[in-house]
Amino acid sequence: MNNAQYEPSEVIDASGLQCPMPLVRASQAARKVDIGAIIQVISTDRGSVPDFQAWVKRDKKVELLSQNEQPGDGGRTVYVHFVKRIA
């Protein structure tokens, strides 16, 4: 997967964290960065994929740019989310 198309101003490593922490960390970061800035969230919780989709549907401050899966350490799958603060 090509992530080079986005330039995140912050990278949140939420790998190993369980629900709801990937969502909480992402939300905290998205509220801190400037409007228009992009954050990258790395998670090992596959539940974070539908969770982020539901989040951006409700929260008008953020937009989901992309989500993808990558093979991570120890056979774990890593889920990478790009979220943009829009308001």
């Binding site: 539940g47 969770d51 989709q53 409700r58």
Partner: peptide
């Protein structure tokens, strides 16, 4: 089945 976390539940609950 679908798989998800608290955001998935709340998205539907809201």
């Amino acid at each position: 089945l679908d798989f998800g976390g608290v955001g998935t539940f709340l998205g539907d609950a809201m």
